[in-house]
Simulated assay, not measured.
Amino acid sequence: MKNINIPFNKPYLTGKETSYIKDAVTTGKISGNGKYTKLCQDFFEQNYGFKKTLLTTSCTDALEMAAILIDIQPGDEIIMPSYTFVSTANAFVLRGAKLVFADSRSDHPGIDEATIEALITPKTKAIVPVHYAGVACDMDIIMDIANRYDLFVIEDAAQAIDSYYTSKDGIKKPLGSIGHLACFSFHETKNIISGEGGLLAINDDQFIERAEIIWEKGTNRSAFFRGEVNKYGWVDVGSSFLPSEIIAAFLWAQLENLKDIQSRRKQIWNNYFQQLKFWANENEVRLPKIPLYATNNAHMFYLVFKNSEKQSHFIRQMKEHQILCVFHYLSLHKSEFYKSKHDDRNLPLSDKYTETLVRLPMYYELKQDKVIHNILNNA
């Protein structure tokens, strides 16, 4: 963007992405499910304990696979937050589901867990919590509700790589390992990137075999390559969810450097918090809150202002000093698409975050002194 010295995001390269891509190309196997796909999937299964993982071309595709796996039918109802990206909703709308939006929490933009149970009807099929900013929803509450009403839980963990939830019994669990299914993103704005890319994590044995078939365009080709069947054919619905080895090779270079990337991002996040907390208090600006049961993976640092006028003023002031700060989601229940098909919903906290939340620049190579200086002196 013209006259922007500090962008909102800048993709970080570890230095090995192109060499791994070259290696993938020279092997002659670039269509996917090869060496680098297996390295990436093994990494997630071994480090986070997911029963089965499948790389996808995006988190959107992982969500669409999840919708197929739980057999969404027209008229099924899905509970999810309104304050989320449209992909969370589209995956289920594409299969005919009705969206039932929940409001955000007063202390955090994530779903208000206390409102979920009242939204359940005989048509409810699943709950889709979104771990906003990589900060865990209260999964004890959500899983208890799901178990009592026999519902599926699909964690939208697009922003939540390497983040954890501590249950009431004191067990620390990686986000994405708690629900029946979970979906991650490796879009260039995320902590770990591959340009576009995603991952489906499967934690329930009943979905493992079918997931692989859906992933391979509805065929049992993976079983064929393992020597489990003599021929492969069309056995189920599916699509082209499997990414190329080029994407997987790029991602592997990132995963090898996960600890370093996370350490740097947390350093930036903590510096924002320490340097801005007094300014925020004096100006009635709210900083991010990390609940005791959650960890911080430093995906995002945001400010919550008193009203939309202060939000807009801050964004303009920072842009004048060549720093790009941005708002986040527009509440999905207020969208033209949703309003035309459903009754109006009153979700004041979701709307509040739309009108008051601002995200600060956040990336590995960020020199944040200028950002902090301009906030303290010009915002």
Rank of each mutant, 00 (worst) to 15 (best):
residue 263 S to Y: 07
residue 271 N to R: 15
residue 148 R to S: 07
residue 3 N to Y: 08
residue 231 K to P: 01
residue 113 E to K: 01
residue 286 R to D: 11
residue 359 R to L: 12
residue 251 L to K: 10
residue 84 T to E: 05
residue 222 S to Y: 15
residue 303 L to A: 07
residue 213 I to C: 00
residue 313 H to L: 03
residue 192 I to M: 06
residue 298 A to Y: 10
residue 287 L to D: 13
residue 361 P to H: 09
residue 39 L to H: 11
residue 297 N to H: 10
residue 220 N to F: 00
residue 88 T to W: 01
residue 329 Y to G: 02
residue 83 Y to H: 15
residue 54 L to F: 06
residue 25 V to L: 11
residue 310 K to Y: 11
residue 96 G to M: 01
residue 212 E to I: 00
residue 11 P to K: 09
residue 150 D to S: 12
residue 193 I to D: 05
residue 207 F to I: 02
residue 9 N to S: 07
residue 41 Q to A: 00
residue 132 Y to K: 08
residue 138 D to R: 12
residue 173 K to L: 08
residue 104 S to G: 11
residue 252 W to Y: 15
residue 140 D to F: 03
residue 339 K to C: 09
residue 250 F to R: 14
residue 14 T to I: 04
residue 71 D to S: 13
residue 37 T to I: 00
residue 165 Y to W: 05
residue 250 F to E: 08
residue 80 M to G: 04
residue 374 N to W: 01
residue 320 E to S: 12
residue 98 K to E: 12
residue 11 P to M: 04
residue 92 F to R: 02
residue 356 T to P: 12
residue 8 F to N: 13
residue 134 G to S: 07
residue 328 H to K: 11
residue 60 T to F: 04
residue 175 L to Q: 14
residue 75 G to F: 03
residue 132 Y to H: 12
residue 268 I to E: 10
residue 147 N to T: 14
residue 323 I to G: 01
residue 227 G to N: 08
residue 253 A to N: 13
residue 87 S to M: 02
residue 290 I to D: 13
residue 361 P to W: 02
residue 252 W to R: 08
residue 223 A to S: 13
residue 90 N to Q: 13
residue 334 K to E: 14
residue 264 R to G: 05
residue 84 T to R: 00
residue 174 P to E: 05
residue 280 A to I: 09
residue 205 D to P: 00
residue 326 V to N: 14
residue 358 V to C: 09
residue 283 N to V: 04
residue 41 Q to E: 15
residue 128 V to E: 00
residue 9 N to C: 02
residue 132 Y to W: 12
residue 33 N to D: 14
residue 330 L to R: 10
residue 82 S to W: 06
residue 291 P to W: 05
residue 44 F to E: 00
residue 288 P to L: 01
residue 144 D to M: 01
residue 185 S to W: 00
residue 85 F to Q: 14
residue 121 T to E: 06
residue 26 T to H: 10
residue 55 L to Q: 00
residue 349 L to T: 14
residue 364 Y to L: 01
residue 103 D to T: 03
residue 135 V to R: 07
